[in-house]
């Protein structure tokens, strides 16, 4: 995966975070090039901070670069983040 922010903290799935927490995006498990690129273009590149705004019944709402994104139920289990 990405090594630019190679700090010693382990990564956890986004699904394990709590509302109000700010975490660092680390990557997506089993993601093809297309998905990773698309996320990067939306502003969700490795090293980017994201804040968990809301967790609904499955999907999450997160804040990235001042925008709100819905990440679906499948995605929140595959996205890896580092807690601050």
């Amino acid at each position: 995966m990405n090594d630019r922010n190679n700090n010693s903290l382990p990564t956890i799935p986004l699904a394990m975070t709590l509302v109000g927490q700010t975490v660092t995006f680390a990557g997506v498990r089993n993601a093809g090039r297309g998905l990773t690129h698309r996320l990067a273009e939306m502003g969700l590149a490795p090293g980017e901070n994201l804040e968990i705004i809301n967790r609904g019944p499955g999907p999450f709402i997160v804040s990235v670069k001042g925008s709100r994104f819905v990440l679906g139920r499948g995605m929140v289990h595959r996205i890896l983040v580092r807690p601050e």
Binding site: V28, L35, R68, F69, V70, G72, R73, G74, M75
Partner: peptide
């Protein structure tokens, strides 16, 4: 097939 990833922007 598997469900596809869901990413969408929420406009204000």
């Amino acid at each position: 097939g598997e469900a596809t990833p869901f990413v969408m922007e929420l406009p204000p």
